[in-house]
Simulated scan of single mutants.
Amino acid sequence: MDVIAGLFNIVLTIFIVTTMLTAGFNTTFEQLRAALSKTSLVVLVLLVAFVLRPLVGWGVAEVFALAVPAYVAMVLLWSCPGAPFGAKLVMTAKADVQTGAVFQVMMAAIGSLTFAPTANLIIGAADLGDDVSLPVGQLILTVALLQLLPFVIGVLTRHWTPDQAAEFGAFTGKVSSQTFLVVLAGALLGSWDAVVDLFGTGVVLAAIVASVVMIALGWFLSSGSRETRWSTALIEPCSNSGPAFAAVAIAFDNDPEILGAITAILLFQIVVGLPVSSFVGRKEARLAQSAA
């Protein structure tokens, strides 16, 4: 078991690093400046991602009276905005891809610093038990090194040597996608019984409700064109799973019940996000044809 846990943590580290490297390799200074120049939109996106999003996860966990492992999983995941899959939902919806991608990586980068204190504050306020807490300093350092540093390296590489960045980005993108599947499969296999048991609880419904609420908040608390509003809406429901998995490994010794809950919640974030983005994409395609 120690060997399997060690391999899982190695693959998890590779997934986190390559995900943020890929984001950096595909981000230019011009894109960052263009997105960040929309001051009111930046403020709204940050408000939704770093204030309302954790509160939604906490509130839904309370409303559905989740057991401690599932409660912890909800708090961890909803304190982690900026999932790369969110940018793919934006692409599927034919929304404002550039704005969505830049905000997604901005949320992931900032979230690498805010995740641990936010989650720990909520866990403490929820009074889940004396033995349920996060080593905030260790997590900030670990996640910042695994997320923020690779992203900065990627952006600088894109600025200085764009051709090499494109080549590296194609490779790291493939590695990121493949290792994400391995991480999910490892979490699922290591906690299969816990995942199955969750289907008889409120965890699945809690994940669905929280995802729908975040899409709505991302749409209504936004500004700009319809395409921009859909981009800010669709990057909200999906969680940047790397920090959450890292927290479970560091603070909870890869607890199978928490891992099972995280896996189930991530799955149903996708289950909600994909149909919505596909519906919007078909609608946008029909509007484009009508305009032509």
Score class of each variant (00 low, 15 high):
residue 163 D to C: 06
residue 283 K to H: 14
residue 201 T to H: 05
residue 127 D to W: 00
residue 272 V to Q: 03
residue 245 F to C: 10
residue 265 I to F: 01
residue 133 S to H: 02
residue 2 D to V: 13
residue 5 A to D: 14
residue 94 K to Y: 04
residue 205 L to T: 13
residue 1 M to T: 07
residue 138 Q to C: 00
residue 71 Y to H: 15
residue 252 F to M: 08
residue 288 A to S: 14
residue 123 I to G: 00
residue 184 L to H: 04
residue 273 G to M: 11
residue 172 T to D: 11
residue 185 A to C: 10
residue 134 L to W: 01
residue 105 V to W: 04
residue 153 I to M: 13
residue 291 A to P: 07
residue 157 T to E: 06
residue 38 K to D: 14
residue 244 A to W: 01
residue 92 T to G: 01
residue 263 T to A: 15
residue 43 V to T: 10
residue 255 D to Y: 11
residue 163 D to W: 06
residue 15 F to R: 08
residue 12 L to Y: 12
residue 195 V to R: 00
residue 91 M to K: 15
residue 281 G to Q: 05
residue 10 I to H: 11
residue 107 M to W: 01
residue 9 N to L: 12
residue 125 A to G: 02
residue 198 L to H: 08
residue 245 F to I: 13
residue 54 P to Q: 04
residue 21 L to S: 05
residue 215 I to T: 11
residue 276 V to F: 14
residue 19 T to M: 14
residue 150 P to V: 00
residue 40 S to C: 02
residue 240 N to R: 08
residue 138 Q to S: 10
residue 121 L to G: 09
residue 63 V to I: 15
residue 249 A to M: 10
residue 120 N to R: 00
residue 78 W to T: 07
residue 104 Q to H: 03
residue 255 D to G: 14
residue 80 C to M: 13
residue 154 G to F: 02
residue 228 T to L: 12
residue 201 T to A: 04
residue 263 T to Q: 03
residue 219 W to I: 06
residue 7 L to Y: 12
residue 109 A to I: 03
residue 256 P to K: 06
residue 139 L to G: 02
residue 14 I to R: 08
